[in-house]
Simulated assay, not measured.
Amino acid sequence: MSACTLRLALVSDIHGNLPALEAVAADIHHRGVDQIVNLGDSVSGPLLPRETAQWLMAAGWPSLAGNHERQLLTQAPAQMGASDAFAHAALGAAEFAWLRAQPATLRLSDEVLLCHGTPASDLIYCLETIDAGRLRLADRQTIAERLGAERSALVACGHSHTPRSVRCGGQLIVNPGSVGLPAFDADRPEFHVAETGSADARYALVERRADGQWSAQLIAVPYDTRVVVQLAVAAGRDEWARALSTGYAS
């Protein structure tokens, strides 16, 4: 990468929500970027896993393996959670081959590192701490510890579904939020919820300006959620239907 202006679009946590992905892709197209990258957790969920995988395969974006890709490839179906099991049953040989080719992290240059959670783990939130059952912004020391020895000027991460842009020790760390699932609850490492409060699909634009500094825009894109809400209900996943339609987990 040279010192000229560069614009990247960051997407993450699509979770098989093809209508949301299409809305985000259309919005990115209108804005113009040099490259689009996908930070993982692309297909797991009770929506359109195979169709989403095929769309991404055709698009050819660099894509990471998130924790759900790892689980889809390493766990027996009987051991999987409901979202992974649904995706596993829907995917074919070509889609699994695409998943197996995805790296856990990707260094675009000396300046840019892509990861799903932290550089070392796909299960740890980089920018959040669980507090009283909810996610809040982690303190600077905790973020620095999670980054470890990573010194890239820009670190892009996902996993928490929570859009954030944080500067820490001269680095810009950006979580674009979730394209496909704006709220969730989880039991590990302890019970907690993540909520954005709207049904919008999320992504981020990051730009390295001519002066070498990185900036970020966190973008929310409205789309028609009726199809995916109906799919979630049909799959018996009312919690997904609620999250998809409201951006709240309860």
Rank of each mutant, 00 (worst) to 15 (best):
G45C: 01
G45W: 01
G45F: 00
L47H: 14
P49V: 00
E51G: 01
E51Q: 15
T52C: 03
Q54P: 08
W55D: 12
L56Y: 04
L56K: 03
M57L: 06
A58W: 02
A59F: 01
G60H: 02
W61T: 05
P62D: 03
S63H: 03
A65L: 10
A65V: 08
H68Y: 08
H68M: 12
Q71C: 07
L73D: 04
L73G: 02
T74M: 10
A78F: 09
A78W: 08
Q79F: 06
M80N: 14
S83K: 11
S83V: 04
F86Y: 15
A87G: 11
A87H: 12
H88N: 09
A89K: 04
L91S: 00
L91H: 02
E95K: 06
F96Y: 13
W98S: 00
W98L: 02
W98V: 02
R100D: 03
R100H: 07
T105W: 05
T105Q: 14
L106A: 10
R107P: 08
R107Q: 14
R107V: 06
R107L: 10
L108R: 14
S109E: 12
S109Y: 13
E111A: 15
C115Y: 11
C115V: 10
C115L: 09
H116F: 12
G117L: 13
P119F: 05
P119V: 09
A120L: 10
S121N: 09
I124G: 10
I124S: 09
I124T: 14
Y125T: 05
Y125S: 08
C126E: 10
L127Q: 07
